[in-house]
Design a protein around this nucleic acid. Structure first.
Ligand SMILES: [Zn+2]
Ligand SMILES: [Zn+2]
Ligand SMILES: [Zn+2]
Ligand SMILES: [Zn+2]
Lengths: 158, 158
DNA sequence: AAGTGAACCGTTATAACATAACACGTCGGC
DNA sequence: GCCGACGTGTTATGTTATAACGGTTCACTT
């Protein structure tokens, strides 16, 4: 079934992500505290990027008591700073980085129908973007590329 | 001084934008009402993309009484739907489209220092993005490309 | 002329997203 | 024992966006 390079978003992928984050934290001496692990699991268990408040709700359910926004935002900051997560700017949501450990600019493919995202990398796009910006006298530092459309599954369904 | 293709963001550019919007509304029988014209002028008078609440404040000042959010958001929707404005997703702000009348995906260059934006077009980037997405089984419909860095002026200053 | 519907705008309230500021506990170095 | 770094809890607030309802105008119909 699975080709060498697929974009299936199976639960196994996300579990993999969680394991890799764990590994990275070990390597870099970052503290993967109980709270962080809990948020990690919530994110790993989601099929699509979650908003901060969705995480707050999930966490509150699990803990049986209300969790306040700063608690979750701090955790998200930790993940973002360490490159474990990308913020989906057009949706105010947070998606696991699918290329952990590689220095990269992600390109996010966002399905308009099912809401799932896929992250791809393209050095060529990155380069061309740099160049194109440079032609306008602009020196690029950071880039955000989000593409909305239909994922493979939803494309077939439609 | 000015080359055939510059990105100066002079006040004249933005005034030009306002005139063109006016023209388009005439051509397509879109109503450029007093409220819309007022918002248009506020946007045209800004040096950098404005947030909705900045527009609300400007409008409230001009009208001498409080203007409520829906009033402005509806106006923004009108401009967005007709392609007069781009939303800067990474900043929750709204920037004049610098390529009115052309069907295009804008690439926004956002200066981290002065906050101004420049919109450029690149069919090559667009194509490559389409292709790259297609390779992942994804059919792209809309794309948001935002690049943060230093504009020409700020680059020289630094 | 009265009736109808679309487009626009005002108004109130609320939802959704995000951060400031301060307090407390733990742990490791000194 | 003291200190500072780090992580978390808590309260309050700031920022961005939309829902829902009402009223006016105007073009079009009957
Ligand atoms: Zn990534
Ligand atoms: Zn889909
Ligand atoms: Zn444009
Ligand atoms: Zn600048």
């Amino acid at each position: 079934m699975s080709k060498s390079r697929d974009h299936s978003h199976a639960a196994s992928d996300r579990r993999d992500w969680a394991r890799q984050v764990e590994k990275f934290c070990g390597q870099r001496e970052l503290q993967l505290t109980p709270l962080r692990r809990q948020v990690l699991d919530i994110l790993a268990g989601a099929q699509a990027p979650l908003g901060a408040y969705a995480i707050i709700e999930a966490l509150s359910r699990e803990q049986g008591k209300a969790v306040a926004p700063p608690t979750v935002y701090r955790t998200l900051d930790f993940f973002l700073e360490n490159g474990f997560l990308h913020k989906v700017e057009s949706r105010n949501a947070y998606a696991p980085c699918e290329h952990l450990g590689r220095r990269h600019h992600g390109i996010l493919l966002i399905c308009a129908r099912c809401g799932r995202t896929d992250e791809i990398e393209s050095p060529r796009v990155d380069e061309m973007l740099q160049e194109t910006a440079a032609k306008a006298g602009f020196s690029a530092q950071r880039q955000m590329v989000e593409v909305e459309g239909l994922c493979e599954a939803c494309g077939k369904a439609a």
